[in-house]
Amino acid sequence: MLEALWNNVDYVASVVLFCIGLYIIIAKNNLIKKFLGLNIMETAVFAFIIALGVVDDGSPPIMGEGASGPFASPIPHALVLTGIVVAVSTTALALSLIIRIYRQCGTIEADELREME
C-alpha cells in the first residue's frame, strides 16, 4: 500500500492539495480567501491531469526534426489548457460579484453578510 502510494506520489499530492483547497473554502470566512481556496482546488485538479500524461524519460509532444520518443501524451495538456481558461472565467465572474457585494454591503466577511440578510 505504502509503496503504491509512493509510486503515485504525484497523484497523492494532488489529492492532498484538493482537500486543502476544500478546507479553505469551508473554514475561511473571507469571500476572497474562500475563492483562493477554490483556485487551489483547481490547481490540484490540473496538476493531477497533467501528471497523467507524464511518461518516464519522455520529451514534450512536439514533432519535427530531431524529436525522439517516448513522448508525453498531448491530450492532458489540451484538457488542462481548456481547464485553465474555464478557471480564469470563473475567477473573473467571482471577483466581479465580490466587488459588487463589497460596494453594496461594505464587507466581504461571510458571517457579517449573513447577519445583513
Binding site: 473554502i25 475563492f35 470563473t90 467571482a94 460579484l97 465580490i98 457585494i101 440578510e117
Partner: peptide, 10 residues
C-alpha cells in the same frame, strides 16, 4: 441576489 449568486458559484 449577488450573495445568492456567489453561494451558487462557490
Amino acid at each position: 441576489a449577488e450573495m445568492a449568486a456567489f453561494k451558487y458559484l462557490l
